[in-house]
């Protein structure tokens, strides 16, 4: 088994809620509230959960694009949260991100070539000719014509822009790439092209991915292991086949039962969750999921379930795992 590239311990990100004339802090949105996991070199960890469960904030906090409120992030043996701003900037060569919206993530004033070259300029890598060559080869790697280097983002479709976003993330030869819903804004036909591209690039450059999505079929296709998040917490974590074959957490079971299956004769029981997602500013006591859980018992409202290894490598936060 490959060594662990990234380990996250008890990561928290609270956003203050300010009210009134004096803008006093009256509470916190607990976007990420105690998340811990590790990612092995070369693997893809899928992160799923519904909107607002904290998966994007978690991905950004891991890269310190938002400053975590608490926790420990160890990347390649280094404690990321203890790095000085200068060390952190150097560290960014190793860890990159691709955002969801390919329209908002490229500077409209920069040509594609300039966007791709900037990371190399910032980190003072290569000579001018080498940078140009590298821009062309990056464009080729993501399946774009090198002539596009002189074009501007508004001339491209969403899928092409996302390829540019991926090329930009790869410009510094990172080891870890956080993919924050990289295909959610794209047409379905383009989605599969970009997913295949990501897989090819992973093999070629031995990349490690954290793949954040709300699309379960995408996560099944691309991940080695999957983490399910609910309301800033982890619900379940397991190998992808294990998780889809035998989900332990009632939330995961409900999510999986909602995946459409293209077979009209297939009968199965849909688990419909009742109620709305509680506010992350005021999460329920005990197990966070108990307000909507079809299998809840008295203890669930009083005591948090803790993070338990149910079978080797299969974790869940539930008092009564299936």
């Amino acid at each position: 088994m490959s060594p662990e590239l990234l380990t996250v311990h008890d990561l928290k990100k609270y956003f203050p809620i300010r009210r009134g004339v004096l803008q006093r802090t009256v509470g916190h949105v607990r976007a990420v509230d105690g998340v811990g996991f590790s990612v092995r070199s070369g693997e893809t960890l899928g992160v799923v959960g519904e909107s607002g469960c904290g998966k994007s904030t978690m991905g950004r906090a891991v890269l310190r694009l938002v400053e975590p409120s608490a926790g420990r992030i160890v990347f390649d043996g280094k404690d990321v949260l203890k790095l000085t701003p200068g060390e952190m900037r150097r560290m960014r060569r190793e860890m990159q991100i691709v955002f969801q919206d390919p329209y908002a993530s490229l500077n409209p004033r920069y040509s594609i070539g300039k966007t791709l070259m900037e990371p190399m300029i910032v980190h003072k890598l290569f000579t001018r000719e080498e940078r140009m060559k590298r821009v062309y080869s990056l464009l080729e790697k993501v399946g774009l014509d090198p002539d596009y280097a002189n074009h501007f983002p508004h001339e491209f479709s969403g899928g092409m822009r996302q390829r540019v976003g991926i090329a930009r993330a790869l410009a510094l030869n990172p080891r870890l790439v956080v993919l924050d819903e990289p295909v959610a804004a794209l047409d379905v036909s383009v989605q599969s092209q970009v997913l295949n591209l990501l897989e090819d690039l992973q093999k070629e450059f031995n990349l490690t991915y954290i793949f954040i999505t709300h699309d379960l079929s995408v996560v099944r296709h691309i991940s080695n292991r999957v983490m399910v998040m609910y309301l800033g917490n982890m619900a379940e974590l397991a190998d992808v086949e294990e998780l889809f074959a035998q989900p332990r957490h009632p939330y995961t079971r409900a999510l999986l039962s909602a995946v459409p299956i293209p077979d009209p004769d297939y009968k199965r029981e849909r688990i419909i969750l009742e109620g709305d997602l509680p506010s992350p500013a005021n999460p329920p006591e005990g197990c966070r999921f108990h307000t909507r859980c079809p299998a809840k018992r008295d203890v669930c409202a009083q005591e948090g379930p803790g993070w338990r290894e149910i079978t080797p490598g299969h974790f869940a936060a539930c008092h009564f795992p299936a």
Binding site: R60, L63, L65, R89, R90, M91, R92, R93, Q96, I97, F99, Q100, D101, A104, S105, L106, N107, P108, E118, P119, V122, H123, G165, R168, L172
Partner: peptide, 17 residues
């Protein structure tokens, strides 16, 4: 508030840049 500003930070660009 745009992602491309976050992108620039993710590249490792300093605040001034």
């Amino acid at each position: 508030g745009n992602d491309y500003i976050r992108t620039a930070r993710a590249k490792g660009a300093g605040e001034r840049r």
